[in-house]
Design a binder for these strands. Structure first.
Lengths: 183, 183
DNA sequence: TTGATTTTGACAGTTACTCTCATTTCATGG
DNA sequence: CCATGAAATGAGAGTAACTGTCAAAATCAA
């Protein structure tokens, strides 16, 4: 979409804060009204939720007898892989903005929380818990919190790690807790 | 502080969005400029970070040979207990605003993330990890994510649970994962 | 009391966002 | 090809959260 492209371009040129909606509208050759019609907030232009349904669909496609933590691992690796292959610069830019711009970060966390809610249903079914139980909700959100940190870590360290590896390490921590007594 | 009191009162009367900085300033008998001087954003008037140092101090006071998950449990229960005893209505209002107002929620999560960073040092030391390692960071943020959900759950269910119990259950999930095969 | 320093306020400006209403675009049936 | 209705777009006015600057006022020290 033109609005999104214009936004990415302008942010790379001038930075996030210096980029106004008016500029975005001008670059995309639409009116500011139209920008607001498609994206309720400025952060929404940067962030995308479009992976959510994909993620969920993938999860449901996994064999039912697979340990669900494994399912999750596969699905997350896949989702992240897709993002990186299709538009690596955008993926990086998003991570970077997450680190630098608090509003973007919180929009991202909110988005991931929504994803988490979706996952809750799947997780609840597999584990035999009630979807609205404290346990499932806490687990899901702790998952989301941990995963969000991956992006931060990645960006802060200059994107030098392979994202799938980070996902693996993060999931290990979330599944088994911190490995004890590491020298 | 007068500004904070005025804010709480106005929010209870009119709700969060309907309460403007101008009204707050008027009620607190200061100028809007002064409000902004003390609180960078509207959400900051509602949220407080003052428990952070207390929490950290408590944590350091625990015996060094205690399993650190136990230390965490004690400290969190204590911190929450204090908040509830000293100003229960405010604690409840904050939880409620966290559920209703996205901006407040994300400010809260950010605040808890900052607390998490502080805890990271303690956690890292006890477990022998590097404080900046992905493992510690993921663990800390997943802790924060899970704990933040407690507040949500509590408010959404009409504050009928005892907060310390919820903390216990949440920490169990975070420590041991979701209990498997619950009928 | 004077002088210095800190706190406060008045004010102007920016920008994200909302609402309303008119206009344009466009698909569809006659 | 034209008319009609629906959807997309735009113009414009308004609000409220901030930011920055500078002057006035309260506070404190000597």
């Amino acid at each position: 979409m033109a609005i999104r492209d214009a936004t990415y371009a302008l942010i790379e040129e001038q930075g996030y804060d210096a980029t106004t909606i008016e500029q975005i509208a001008e670059r995309a050759e639409v009116s500011p009204s139209t920008v607001f019609r498609y994206f309720p907030t400025k952060e929404d232009i940067v962030i995308t939720d479009e992976y959510d349904p994909v993620l969920l669909a993938e999860l449901l496609r996994r064999p039912a007898d697979e340990p669900w933590t494994d399912s999750l691992r596969h699905v997350l690796r896949e989702a992240i892989g897709v993002g990186m292959e299709e538009e690596p610069e955008v993926t990086r830019l998003r991570s970077q903005l997450m680190v630098q711009i608090p509003a973007v970060r919180s929009r991202m966390v909110a988005s991931m929380a929504a994803t988490g809610r979706m996952l809750s249903a799947a997780v609840a079914e597999r584990t035999g818990h009630d979807r609205d139980s404290l346990e499932v909700r806490v687990f899901t959100m702790s998952l989301v919190g941990g995963l969000a940190e991956i992006s931060q870590y990645w960006a802060e360290n200059g994107f030098r790690d392979e994202l799938p590896d980070l996902v693996d390490r993060a999931l290990d921590v979330i599944e088994h807790g911190l490995p004890t007594r590491k020298p």
